[in-house]
């Protein structure tokens, strides 16, 4: 008798579960982070990309200001310092990929310090003092802060012997499709030296998407080598999505290794 009862109860559980699953299909999608929810959105983290060179006279103003700026913005912004190589201006932190990244934004007046907030949305070029640089950073941030993003980024990091692999998922939120976006990643390191707390150490090749449908999730596997002598354990990985049309940064995250 007990055996029949158990079979009956198991069958009943199964029926209840099936009914629940059926009911779930009809639930309203109210979760703002659910890409299938047409009203979904996220706060946008401001990506601050500073192109600098330690041998140039005005860069120190910007670097010192960035250190202080970072304490003010907290998690609302992610700062990346690209030390741009230049023949006449040696820089111990120079990264060859930084030149290409700078060239994405500027090809004529490449002069440092040059700081971009959410891509080309805001630009602060030059610095005459710590105070003036900080004031201008704050003004740019005030414009960009509080904006929403229609993208969610998630990424997993896999560190191998000589390389680092990122599994990136880019979800399109909101109610419209998107064209011509790419995801890219940068490893940054806090060197412990004042003004050098967000130094770019490696740049992953970008992965472009010509189209991402509304509510869809695009995936990308990004691989970059770990340069010899680098301590990748000190790295933090910044992953961001950007429009290749207007060069606006659409969302950015800091990935835990």
């Amino acid at each position: 008798m007990t055996g029949y009862k158990q079979i009956f109860l198991s069958g009943l559980k199964l029926v209840v579960m099936l009914l629940l699953f059926q009911g779930c299909a009809d639930l309203e999608r109210k979760n703002p982070l659910d890409p299938k929810n047409s009203a979904s959105k996220q706060d946008r983290v401001v990506l601050v990309e500073a192109f600098v060179n330690d041998s140039t006279p005005f860069t120190p103003f910007a670097l010192t200001a960035l250190d202080y700026f970072a304490t003010q913005v907290g998690f609302n912004a992610i700062i990346v310092q690209y030390h741009v190589p230049a023949q006449q201006y040696p820089d111990n932190f120079a990264l060859s990929g930084a030149l290409a990244r700078y060239g994405f934004y500027e090809t004529v007046n490449r002069a440092v310090p040059d700081v971009f907030f959410n891509g080309l949305n805001q630009r602060v070029q030059g610095a005459s003092s710590h105070a003036s640089a900080l004031e201008r950073f704050q003004a740019a941030m005030a414009i960009e802060a509080g904006n929403i993003s229609l993208f969610t980024i998630e990424a997993d990091v896999e560190t191998r012997a000589n390389s680092m692999v990122l599994d990136v998922r880019l979800a399109k939120l909101g109610s419209e499709d998107v064209r011509d976006v790419f995801v890219q990643a940068v490893a940054i390191e806090n060197t412990g030296v004042s003004g050098h707390r967000f130094v770019a150490r490696q740049i992953w090749p970008a992965r472009s998407f010509s189209f991402i449908g509304n509510g869809k999730i695009a995936t990308a596997k990004l691989t970059a080598s770990i340069p010899s002598g680098a301590n990748a354990a000190l790295w933090k990985i910044v992953v961001f999505a950007q429009s290749s049309q207007n060069k606006e940064t659409l969302q950015a995250i800091l990935v835990n290794q």
Binding site: F58, T59, N109, R110, A111
Partner: peptide, 11 residues
């Protein structure tokens, strides 16, 4: 006016 010093990387 305030001029913000910037150094060209290209000669």
């Amino acid at each position: 006016v305030n001029l913000e010093g910037a150094t060209r990387l290209d000669r």
